[in-house]
Every structure is written in structure tokens, then in C-alpha cells.
Design a protein around this nucleic acid. Structure first.
Lengths: 207, 207
DNA sequence: GTCTATACTAGGATAGAC
DNA sequence: GTCTATCCTAGTATAGAC
């Protein structure tokens, strides 16, 4: 960036339109990734859903992988925003519960892009994407701090390594139990979230 | 079946070879499904891995979906066999723990075919497959019985609906935490299983 | 930067000889 | 029932006009 500050303040109307369109694209990709996953999502579908020609999509994003990566950056940014909004006064375990709840609510809303299988072509693109990795690291560091603090104050199990707890929380973002329970049609979204949250923190065994 | 009993006992050598080959095919499909999932698995790959021509595959199974369904039937049969082998004298919760452990060991061994996303073409084929559905129902009924019993004897949380517990146990078969922890390279398979098992039954919160 | 039209490839499925 | 060779659709990506 060698633009002087004075040149930045007023983005042109055209540039704003561009950003708005890109946001619309990424939001659509996000939804489709949540619905069907990376492999099953087609670029034709994305274009049709956004309402522009496929070739236009490729002017914004060089490949299907980059399209998906943009959606992953977006959801990580939403996660960061949520972490920032968690009250600092809350206890560490309350913060962790809040994050797990948010994750599940996003998934139930159909807005959680599902990560691809290990061998997907998307993995390489993601690992090379600085915007994604940086956010992932920041989220992990923040959660890691809360986990260690919660173990210290005795509210979180100290017998589990912090990394196992971190991964367990991440896994709530793609927990199939939410979808299963929703499919049963017997419970509201709020009830489902409470049940899975209780299972996650209190376990299946009686207390 | 209108064959008389006397005609059955000695399956011809040829028929045995046929079954052996089909078992080899299904075992390969099972492994590939575990590695990459249904969408990413290609029929060419299956044929190459088994060591036969693609057209020969299609003499045994009419479509890629049926190929995958056969693998799903196979794993459900393995699950049934395991359930039958669980000591009847064990307490209900001990039985449930044993099943969860088995599920995770199979996954870590790379032998747990991963179920497809909701909108996959495979779902329709599976739901129409009697061999699969029957086994699924039997497994669910058996586990359901153990769950209710464990809730009655006070070892399993009575605050959760049995169906939520059932789904939670099923979800251990595709828990990404196992793969994550394995990827960290810090723990043995046995340690990973114990950690996730403890998380599942005892929860993240301290006891 | 948007469109229409098209190139190119991967991959599921089949034909037809043996 | 196995093979080689081929068909054909779907899907990623691009050319080229406006």
C-alpha cells in the first residue's frame, strides 16, 4: 500500500458497488457451502444464485477454491467479531460456553460452511491463505487463553489437554447431532442448542 | 428362496471366488470412503485399487451409489457383530462405552466410511436399501434399549432425551476431533480414544 | 466488469469382443 | 465376467465482444 492516507477516506461509489457485489457473492457461497459442502457445490449454482454470469464470478475470484476460501475468511471474521463482543467480565468457562453456543446457532441457521475432507483441493488453498490462517490463529489463541484460565480456576477439566478441549469446541461447528435432532422435528432450535451444549460440557453420564 | 436345503450346502468354487472378489471390492470402497468421502471418491480409483477394469465393477454393482451403499451395509453388519459380542453381563453404560470406543477405533483405523452431506445422491439410495435400513434399525433399537436402561439405573443422564444420546453416540463415528488430535502427532491412538471417550461421557467441565 | 459462447477435462456409465 | 475402447454429461475455466 503506497497510497497516502488522504487518498483513502472516500472510496468511490463504483468501488462500494464492487465490494457490495463481492459480499453478496461470498454470502451466497457461504450458504451453499453450509448446505452441500465444497465438492457438491458448483460454480454454475453460485452464479445462478447470485444472479450474474459465471464468467463474471471468475473476474472476482480466480477459482472455485478461492471462492470457498473467501467464505471461510468471512466466517472466521464473524467468529473474531463475536469473540470481541464477549463480555470481558464473564468467567472463562462462561465465555467458552458462549462461543460454543454461537457456533451451534450459526450452524442451525444454515450459515456455517462445512470444512472439506482431508484430501480436498481446498485444504492447500486455505493453508496458503494468510487472511484465513491469521484469523484462525487469533481465534485459537484467544480460546486457548480462556481454556487455560478455566482449567486453573477449576471450572474446566484439568485432566484433558487444552488442545483436546480446543478441538472439541471447534467440532461443535460441524456437529451432525444438530442436524439429526432438527430432522427429527421434535425440538426447537433453542432446545437443540441447550441439549448439545449440556452434552458437551456436562457429558452423557449422570452427575 | 425356493431352493431346497440339500441344494445349498456346497457353493461352487466359482461362486466363492465371486463372493471373495465382491468382498475385496467393498473393502476397498470402504477404505476410500473413509479416506475421502463419497463425492471425492472416483470409480476409476476404486477399479485401479482393486486391480480390475472399471467395466467389471459395473457388472457387480450398477452404480457408484450402490457401491457405496454396499460399503455402508458392510460397516453396519460389523457394528451388529460387535453388539452381539458385547458381554450381556456388562452394565448398560459399560456396553454403551464399549460401543463408542469401538466406533472410534474403527475410525482411527481408517475403516469408517464417512456419511455424505444431506443433499447427496447417496442418501436416496441408502434410504431405499433394505439391507442397510434393517441393520440401522436393529442397531438403533439395541442401543436405545441400553440407553433407557442406563438412564433407569442412574448411570446415564436422565435429563437428555434418549434420542439425543443415541445421535451423540452415532456422531462419534465421524468425530473430527480424532483426526485433529491424530494430526497433532502428540498422542497415541489409544490415548486419543480415551480422551474423546472421557469428553463424551464426562463432559468438558470439571467433575 | 458484464455478458454469450465455447474450450477442455474429469468422471460415471456402456458397447462389444473374447 | 473380464477386458479395451468409447460415449456423454457435468462442471471448471476462458475467449472475445460490448
Amino acid at each position: 500500500m503506497n497510497t497516502v492516507a488522504a487518498a483513502v477516506p472516500k472510496p468511490s461509489f463504483k468501488a462500494q458497488m464492487l465490494l457490495a457485489r463481492e459480499e453478496a457473492i461470498v454470502a451466497t457461497v457461504n450458504r451453499l457451502l453450509a448446505e452441500k459442502g465444497f465438492e457438491a457445490m458448483t460454480v454454475d449454482e453460485v452464479a445462478a444464485s447470485v444472479g450474474i454470469a459465471k464468467a463474471s464470478l471468475y473476474k472476482h475470484f480466480p477459482s472455485k477454491e478461492d471462492l470457498a476460501a473467501a467464505a471461510m475468511v468471512r466466517i472466521m471474521q464473524r467468529a473474531l467479531d463475536f469473540l470481541d463482543a464477549v463480555p470481558a467480565a464473564d468467567s472463562p468457562i462462561a465465555k467458552l460456553r458462549a462461543v460454543a453456543r454461537w457456533t451451534m446457532e450459526v450452524q442451525l441457521a444454515g450459515e456455517m460452511p462445512s470444512l472439506p475432507h482431508q484430501s480436498s483441493s481446498l485444504r492447500a488453498t486455505l493453508m496458503a491463505n494468510r487472511d484465513y490462517i491469521d484469523r484462525l490463529v487469533t481465534v485459537s489463541d484467544t480460546l486457548g487463553g480462556w481454556i487455560v484460565a478455566a482449567q486453573k480456576d477449576g471450572s474446566l477439566s484439568a485432566r484433558l489437554p487444552a488442545i483436546a478441549i480446543l478441538y472439541t469446541l471447534y467440532a461443535r461447528a460441524c456437529d451432525p447431532v444438530l442436524e439429526f435432532l432438527k430432522g427429527s422435528g421434535q425440538y426447537s432450535d433453542a432446545q437443540i442448542v441447550e441439549m448439545v451444549l449440556a452434552t458437551c460440557f456436562d457429558g452423557l453420564a449422570a452427575r
